[in-house]
């Protein structure tokens, strides 16, 4: 059983599993939206003193902080008890494209470890990709009023036009980064 669920999950298992998460949260009276926890954390840290945006009753949002503590714990369980040492079955085209940009062994780990590691952090490339990348995620998610979970999953499921516009934005940004910026950044 453990062995069976330790295999990589195909998309047709993963997608419905995400809907299960969304449905359970709705039944619990909450909305699935992970990036809200960033605002809540700022509010807990006292950001309400400098911006009205963070003057929220964060105790109402504690459930979401507990949810993401679960998301961390889930990662821990998946990488230990449910560990699966095989490489990610990436498309050979992707592996070739990354190799041409100097990224070796694509798919051997979840991340290119030459970038996303403490050794990578002290290089320009790694610093930019983690610090600027993270900043854009946090800034953009709040500007757009949600991230993948809030807009792409919940918003689209609820047939919200604003979420469709946001998801189109996600792809505009993602394609610009992948085609026009990453090629120079990865070869820095």
């Amino acid at each position: 059983m453990i062995e069976f669920i330790s295999q990589p999950w195909p998309w047709y298992v993963s997608g419905p599993a995400i809907v299960l998460v969304m449905g359970l949260l709705l039944l619990a009276g909450k909305t699935f939206g992970v990036s809200d926890t960033l605002r809540t954390t700022c509010a807990i840290g006292g950001a309400g003193k400098v911006s009205e945006f963070f003057k929220i009753d964060w105790k109402d949002q504690l459930w979401n902080i507990v949810f993401v503590i679960g998301a961390i714990l889930g990662g821990l369980i998946a990488s230990t008890i449910l560990q699966q040492p095989e490489a990610i079955a990436l498309s050979p085209d992707t592996v070739d494209k990354l190799q041409a940009l100097g990224i070796q062994n694509a798919g051997e780990n979840f991340l290119p470890e030459e970038i996303f590691s403490w050794e990578g952090f002290v290089t320009v490339r790694g610093f930019v990709m983690m610090v600027i990348g993270g900043f854009l995620i946090g800034f953009g998610a709040r500007y757009a009023g949600g991230c993948t979970s809030g807009h792409a999953i919940t918003g689209l499921s609820n047939l919200q036009l604003p979420s469709l516009i946001a998801v189109i934005g996600f792809f505009i940004g993602g394609l610009i980064m992948t085609y026009f910026i990453l090629p120079s950044l990865l070869t820095l």
């Binding site: 990709m129 983690m130 600027i132 990348g133 993270g134 900043f135 854009l136 995620i137 946090g138 800034f139 953009g140 998610a141 709040r142 500007y143 757009a144 009023g145 991230c147 993948t148 807009h151 604003p162 979420s163 516009i165 946001a166 998801v167 189109i168 934005g169 996600f170 792809f171 505009i172 940004g173 993602g174 394609l175 610009i176 980064m177 992948t178 910026i181 990453l182 950044l185």
Partner: peptide, 16 residues
């Protein structure tokens, strides 16, 4: 709001 915010988010999503 959604188009600009979404595009900024997408840039970060593909980078990180």
């Amino acid at each position: 709001r959604y188009l600009i915010g979404g595009t900024i988010f997408g840039l970060g999503w593909a980078m990180a």
